[in-house]
Simulated scan of single mutants.
Amino acid sequence: MQPSAILESALYVADLDAAEAFYADVLGLERIARADGRHVFFRCGAGVLLLFNAEATREPPSPDAKLPVPPHGAAGEGHLCFAATEDEIKRWKAKLGERGVAIEADFHWPPKPGQEQGGRSIYFRDPSGNSLEFAEPKIWGL
């Protein structure tokens, strides 16, 4: 057996309000849940992006918790890549620039076997310093 897809991905943020504003207002994601001081969740295509306050997620659930999710968390900056076409990447680069979001890198990956040219990626940061990327799926041969 093998998993068929990634359903959810998590990043850990220092300021939930700043993260919520960035992912909703700059990236246009739809907020689907929020627990003050703990998390904010967004729909992203067929999956879900989970943004957590790492300190809050390290606390074990109470014995009577309705959702006994085990403690988890991470320290430091994470990474997440959003799929985008070449045209979408051009538009995202312009939109991010208009919103004052610096592009750290913009390049084409080497072609995969059987490809004439590799895909393009742009990298930028969220307010917590997480590294975000828009990339053409063909960087992975998809």
Rank of each mutant, 00 (worst) to 15 (best):
P111N: 15
E8A: 11
L67Q: 12
K93I: 03
L49D: 00
A94K: 11
E59R: 15
P127W: 09
M1L: 14
E55Y: 01
I6H: 04
L142Q: 10
S62A: 11
P113T: 07
I6K: 08
L142R: 15
I103H: 08
A19D: 02
S128W: 05
A102M: 03
I89F: 12
E88P: 02
D87R: 15
P61W: 13
N53T: 00
G141Y: 01
R58L: 04
F82T: 07
L80C: 06
L67Y: 14
G28H: 12
V26C: 05
Y23F: 14
H108F: 15
E98R: 02
D25C: 11
A56S: 09
D126M: 14
A19T: 03
A105C: 03
L132C: 12
H39Y: 04
A75Y: 11
A74F: 12
G141M: 02
A54W: 07
P127V: 08
G114P: 06
L27C: 01
L49T: 01
D106A: 14
H79T: 02
D87N: 12
P70E: 03
L51G: 03
T57I: 00
A33Q: 11
L80I: 07
P63L: 08
C44S: 14
V13C: 12
R38M: 00
F124Y: 09
E59P: 01
L27R: 04
L50A: 08
E104Y: 00
D106Q: 10
A83S: 11
F124A: 05
P137F: 06
R58K: 11
H72L: 14
P127G: 14
F82W: 09
L142S: 12
F22K: 04
A5T: 10
F82Y: 12
P61A: 09
W140D: 00
T85S: 13
E116Y: 03
I122P: 01
R43F: 01
V26R: 13
Y23E: 09
G45T: 06
S128P: 04
I32L: 14
R91K: 14
A14C: 10
I103W: 08
Q2C: 02
D126H: 13
G100A: 11
A10D: 01
G129L: 12
V48M: 09
K138A: 08
G118V: 05
S121Q: 07
